[in-house]
Amino acid sequence: MSDTSLTIDNILSSQLTLCQAPASSKKRVLEFIAERIHYQDETLSESDIFSNLVSRERLGSTGIGQGIAIPHCRLDGLDRVIGVLMTLQEPVDFDAIDNQPVDLVFALVVPKEATSAHLELLSQLAEKFNDGAFCQRLRQCTDSDSLYQGMLADSQ
């Protein structure tokens, strides 16, 4: 994958946007991400995705503060970047840098070799989630469709 012009709107699908997901722990959030990606593409191993996400979390929490986490990992055999956006029914402890529980999650699963694209997307996400008003709008969404539209609204 040599495309470095990846943007949030071309890696996120409405099927992988989930409003008020039920998750009681960080582990459950990561399991839920792996389940959803596998459900969308059965050629991808749910256990591989989950174990790669967990391995990345062991290096340091992807909770970036202010109730936001951007779990991410690389995956062998993947030919595209996959994004998963979720708001959680109840905030969960994510070992975030500010010790605040997380209720807004954007997961990124990228091909093993997609390093610059991966970093560019993480940077775009961090910038978007740094906007408090933007995050507040996402948290106020009551269904997955409005959450999906809300995420993409500012990225055109």
Rank of each mutant, 00 (worst) to 15 (best):
D79R: 12
I37T: 02
D143A: 01
Q15H: 13
A23V: 10
A133K: 15
Q89S: 14
V102M: 05
N52M: 07
L75Y: 03
P71S: 05
S5T: 13
G60S: 10
F32S: 12
A117L: 00
I82W: 02
G83R: 10
Q136K: 14
T115H: 14
S155Y: 06
H118I: 01
S25L: 08
A153C: 10
D154W: 06
V92W: 05
I97M: 15
R58W: 00
I70K: 03
L53S: 01
L12N: 04
S47C: 00
L125A: 15
C135N: 13
D41R: 05
Q156C: 10
V105H: 07
P22G: 10
A21V: 14
L85C: 15
H118S: 07
Q100V: 10
P101C: 03
S61H: 03
E90N: 13
I68T: 11
V29H: 09
R137M: 10
V110K: 00
L104N: 07
T87Q: 07
E35I: 09
K27W: 01
L85G: 12
V109N: 10
D93P: 03
C19L: 02
S5N: 15
E90P: 00
S14I: 12
A34Y: 03
R58C: 02
L12M: 08
D143R: 00
L138R: 03
T142K: 11
L30I: 03
I82Y: 06
F106Q: 09
C141A: 14
A69E: 06
Q15L: 10
P101R: 03
T4E: 13
A153L: 14
S24A: 15
G60H: 09
I68W: 01
A153P: 00
D103G: 10
F134N: 04
L75A: 02
R139P: 05
C135G: 02
T142V: 08
E90H: 14
T43Q: 14
T62E: 02
A21C: 12
R74E: 01
